[in-house]
C-alpha cells in the first residue's frame, strides 16, 4: 500500500511538472492557435490531477468544459480576431511583482490549513457525516455527492444552471452572427 502511495505521489509530481511546463509554453508562445491547443492540454492535465485527488465530479467538469467547450469557443473567437498576439510595449516587471506577492500571500494562507485528507478535519466532522447517514433514507441513491447537489442544495444548483445558461446564450449571441454569415458563404461554395 505504501508503494502505491509513493507511486501516486510521483505521478502527482510528474503531472505538476508538466503543468508548469505547459504554462511556460503558453506564456512564450505568440501564435494564438497554438495557445488554444496548449490551454486544452493544460485543462486535460489539471483534470488528470483532479482524478488523482479523487475529485471525480470536478475532473468531469474540467474535462468537459476546459478541454472541450472552451477550446472550441477560443477557436471561434480566433476566427474573429487576428492569428498572432500583439507585441506588448510596456515592461512586465510590475505585473510579475504583483503576481509574486499575491502568490506568496496565498501560499502563506495555506500554511494554516489542516493537513490534506486527515480524518479529523473540519470538513469531515461538520455536516458530511449527516449527509452520509441521511442520504439512503432521504433520497435513496448511492451517490452522496449527487444527492447533495440535486436535492439538499437543489435551489442552489438551479441558480447555477440559470447563470450558466445565461452565459451560454450571451456567448452564442456574440459569436453567432458572424458564424451564420460564414456558414452561408460556405454553403454556397459547396
Amino acid at each position: 500500500m505504501t508503494a502505491n502511495l509513493i507511486g501516486i505521489a510521483i505521478i502527482d509530481i510528474v503531472f505538476f511538472t508538466l503543468l508548469v511546463l505547459t504554462a511556460i509554453a503558453i506564456l512564450r508562445q505568440r501564435n494564438l492557435f497554438a495557445v488554444a491547443m496548449l490551454s486544452g492540454v493544460f485543462s486535460l492535465l489539471s483534470a488528470g490531477l483532479f482524478v488523482t485527488l479523487d475529485a471525480m465530479d470536478v475532473a468531469f467538469t474540467e474535462a468537459a468544459v476546459g478541454a472541450g467547450i472552451s477550446t472550441v469557443l477560443m477557436l471561434g473567437t480566433l476566427a474573429l480576431t487576428s492569428r498572432d498576439e500583439a507585441k506588448r510595449p510596456r515592461s512586465a516587471l510590475l505585473p510579475l511583482f504583483v503576481c509574486l506577492v499575491a502568490g506568496a500571500a496565498l501560499v502563506y494562507g495555506t500554511l494554516d490549513m489542516p493537513p490534506f485528507g486527515a480524518v479529523d478535519n473540519p470538513i469531515q466532522t461538520h455536516v458530511a457525516p449527516e449527509y452520509i447517514a441521511r442520504t439512503p433514507t432521504d433520497i435513496g441513491i448511492p451517490n452522496v455527492v449527487a444527492a447533495v447537489l440535486a436535492s439538499y442544495r437543489g435551489f442552489d444548483t438551479l441558480g447555477e444552471v440559470v447563470v450558466v445558461f445565461a452565459a451560454l446564450v450571451a456567448v452564442l449571441l456574440m459569436l453567432g452572427t458572424s458564424g451564420r454569415r460564414t456558414n452561408g458563404k460556405n454553403g454556397k461554395e459547396e
Binding site: F60, V72, L75
Partner: peptide, 21 residues
C-alpha cells in the same frame, strides 16, 4: 474508467471541431 471514457469522447469531439475550424 468512466472518466477515461468521457475524455475519449471529449477528445474526439475537440479534434473534429479543430479540423472543421
Amino acid at each position: 474508467l468512466d472518466i477515461a471514457m468521457l475524455y475519449a469522447l471529449v477528445n474526439f469531439v475537440g479534434t473534429i471541431a479543430i479540423l472543421k475550424f
